[in-house]
């Protein structure tokens, strides 16, 4: 697909639009910002999941577990008064650490078995959150009555309005895009894709497959935990039902529909599956929500059959082909 304008201009335009977005909605500000924040959170999550599914070809059906780990870690720490800026790296490290430990045994498994094992792990995390009442307050969620997730403070300000969170989330979305982009066009990123294309050939071309897979797996877990930590502070509440299996599937659907392994595709998938239904719900009423999942089911099947590469397929970058200077 050829774009009518060059990529840097397009990117600058998009960035500008994102920066002024809150001011385009004079009256109905709160809702527009809420949707934008939600899209932002899901973008971070899906860009993380895209590293395993899209680049490395590892289907993960329990990714919400890491969102949950990030959200719960953040909630527990911040209830005890730990600053957001300390909580955040801790969450990322905890998410990455758990992901690393999970990867040790499961990354050896074949694709579809890996999918089922991650599903099982996701459910275990949810059930544990549901049942370890002492730590997580069980199904009632955190914070408990009388407790509060502390505010984020930045240069002496308190972030307490949605617009503050909008810019905070935007900053992290841009970071996630940057990390994804740089990863994609690196030695490591090429190794991810090679593993997706043919694991054995990758190993026999000199790639330490077990290690590279583990790196991909851990980075994506970190993205998930990061998104969870931000979400917990934004909404100020976490409970186990936010992290069901179907939520994990929902993330996979966004990536599949948008275009696996393509940053733009993933963002489009999130906008289509998170943003559009929210907007339709506000215009068509709550009844629409009932049909949402029905439609998703059909769309998932249709996309995988008729357009398996997604709406925006991932495209390999062309490189300079001049003959290298004679030796």
């Amino acid at each position: 697909m050829k774009l009518p304008i060059s990529k840097p201009y397009l990117m600058s335009g998009v960035l500008l639009l994102l920066l002024v977005w809150p001011f385009l909605w004079g009256g109905d500000n709160a809702y527009a910002l809420y949707i934008a924040c939600l899209i932002g959170i899901y973008t971070i999550l899906c860009l993380g999941l895209n590293i395993t599914i899209g680049y490395t070809g590892l289907l993960d059906l329990g990714f919400m577990a890491f969102y949950a780990i990030g959200a719960y870690t953040a909630a527990i720490l911040s209830i005890h008064g730990v600053s957001f800026w300390l909580t955040l790296p801790v969450c990322v490290l905890v998410g990455g650490g758990v992901r690393y430990l999970l990867g040790l045994p499961v990354l050896k498994l074949r694709g579809d078995y890996l999918a089922i094992v991650t599903l099982a792990f996701g459910e275990i995390v949810r059930l544990v959150a549901n049942n370890t009442v002492g730590l997580t307050n069980g199904p009632k969620g955190l914070p408990r009555v009388g407790e509060k997730i502390s505010e984020i403070r930045l240069f002496g300000w308190s972030l307490n309005d949605t617009i503050h969170f909008y810019y905070l989330i935007l900053a992290f979305v841009l970071l996630a895009v940057l990390v994804s982009h740089r990863l994609e066009h690196s030695r490591l990123g090429r190794a991810f894709v090679a593993i997706r294309e043919d694991e054995l050939a990758a190993e026999l071309s000199g790639i330490h497959v077990a290690r590279v897979k583990s790196v991909a797996f851990v980075i994506s877990g970190m993205f998930g935990a990061l998104a969870g930590a931000i979400y917990a502070h934004w909404i100020g509440f976490v409970s186990p039902e936010m992290f069901t299996f179907w939520e994990s599937v929902f993330l996979v659907a966004m990536i599949v529909v948008g275009g696996m392994g393509n940053i733009g595709g993933v963002v489009l998938g999130v906008i289509l599956l998170v943003g559009v239904p929210e907007i339709l719900r506000s215009t068509l009423g709550a009844k629409f929500v009932d049909y949402r999942m029905l439609v998703f089911g059909v769309v998932m099947v249709a996309v995988i059959i008729f357009r398996p590469q997604g709406l925006i397929p991932s495209k390999r970058r062309s490189l300079e082909l001049h003959t290298p200077e004679a030796e």
């Binding site: 694709g111 049909y291 769309v299 995988i304």
Partner: peptide, 24 residues
């Protein structure tokens, strides 16, 4: 003849569809 994970994703789509069909 699609990649091995495609039918699994398709099956999940069907699963969502059938559940919601009955629910609705």
């Amino acid at each position: 003849h699609a990649p091995r994970l495609s039918p699994l994703i398709s099956a999940i789509g069907i699963s969502i569809f059938l559940q919601n069909l009955i629910m609705l």
